[in-house]
Design a protein around this nucleic acid. Sequence first.
DNA 1: TGACAACCTG
DNA 2: CAGGTTGTCA
Length: 627
Amino acid sequence: MNLSLPDQNMHNSSEGCLEDDKPDVMLPCFRRNMYDEPLASYSSGSIISQLLRKTIHNKRALDESHFYLCGSTAADSGQEDQSSVSSKDSTVEAASPNPHVSTGVSSEGEHPMTDHLQAKRARVENIIRVMAGSPNSRQHGDIEKPDTDVRDTREAREAYRENKRKQRLPQHQEHSVSGPVNEECHKLKEQLHSMQRLLRQLQEKFLQVYNQEDREHDDRDEIDRMKIVGYLVHQRESQNLQEALKQELSRAVNECVDRVFKKVSSTGLDLSPQQRMCSTPEMQLNTSGDRKSQQGNCAQEQLHSEESAVKPRSLEYYESSEAQSPQDQTEALSLVVRKPAVTPLSSVTPTVKRPYPVHQTPFQFNYSTPLHDSQILEHLLKYGPHSNFLPCMPPSMDRTSPDSVDLPWDTIAMRSKVTSSHLGHHARPSTLGPVTVDNLCLPHVKIECGELQSMAERSPYMSLNISFHLKRSEGLTPSHLKKAKLMFFYTRYPSSNVLKTFFPDVKFNRCITSQLIKWFSNFREFYYIQMEKFARQAIVDGISDVKDITVSRDSELFRALNMHYNKANDFHVPDRFLEVAEITLHEFYNAISSAKDSDPSWKKAIYKVICKLDSDVPEEFKTSSYL
DNA sequence: TGACAACCTG
DNA sequence: CAGGTTGTCA
């Protein structure tokens, strides 16, 4: 037996070997030989044989790595990787264990192993030929020819032999049938199972071997380290094998599925890809939402109305949770979703040009259908729980009637009289992006609900940048901003107490409070700027009587305000706001008409009037799930 | 002097 | 919309 390795990387010192405890250095065979090379590189016909070969090879390498860890190093396996038969043979035969390490093992097994290996090799070659049934099989057999891992223990060898027996039997049977893809898929599955069994048994055997050696050898420290290294090797190898098998199985299954679908498609069930993906009820629900979203702002306006139909259960759920555990679940679902801007600009542009659509596309929802949790979840994921807008809708709304959803928008009755320069910029396609995103309203918030996240991950249609935060918000989100804007329709000067009351899901601190106050300050700023602008415009237009100035939902002033505070146009602005706006406009008109605007602080008197016109914010705004 | 609101700016 | 500044007021 040639104790010299072809490669000179062999460590003569076991200590030196063990210092090379980095896997990449120590076990290049696993890195290069086993499964690191892509399976796709194999021809489909030889995949199974390749897998098997590698499994066998792997096993042998494991044995070698166990016993030759110090002596048979990178070069050894590296040469094997070159599929050089001669060098392989010489390598394996030359690869002698470091006597220090393999004491009592190699000497015991050398001669008996010869016969055993002959038999085993014959069996393996036979397996491969039969399984692969390809011209490559002989080559594979040649590659495996130097199967000379004779340094195994008896136990390991027996285990290996038995495992191969178990593995072989069904394979012969399987390959006697050359069936269609599903059969091949089935075979692959069985092979996978058998290989996994083999792996488990190997693992057990190795542990037994290591334990046995642990008792036999005096150099306890050395052996312990060997055991650890070997175990790590085995772990890595197992993972590689598992990954390879999973990949292969997955690929085979995918092929089967593809073929089945092709057949299905060819037989008349010609589903579009999206339909295939959305074949479940909740997915259909989602699809309708997607379709609406593709219709642009128009559809966006419906979404919130839709939500109200779904909301009752989800809202109730979250509210009850909050009541039961106010500390842990104040959290009551401040949920926001940002949908990717998948809609082509061209498909949305028409609706952008008409920011206040009169007619809405009927809902696709069937409101009377009981919703499963997954549906609710999906709905929440998709649209967010904005359905508290429902209380703001006219009470006559019949949510079960698809047509009735038009009602709130008809009440707004904002015909598109886009002639004003004030609205002109909204009609520009360039504003589409922000408008669309803002309608979606939705921030990225870290997912903090693992279960929901995992659910979302399982559904490709739910993994659209889904964001949750079910805990009390540490900061203000765009949803909070939207809510604040809607609150502005009721209160222009909210007190901090009001803010705290109506933002229960916000963890208030000085910063948060200031930010909220700042928001309303900004709202007021815009509000008063608009008032002054329209008041001056009225004067320029020659309006002499303040009574001729009114603010209705058709007014351009209202449109401008609505676009600012209710951009999605999904909220029914209370009539009181129109009254307040009209009063404010009158104040400005009167002040400007009487030249009070020459006074630097002429607006203060107006502010003093307007601040008294606040009305109560509806109770519905209090719930944190309003967002 | 701190709080608040308006104002200015980017 | 946010940051900074200014003015007012208790």
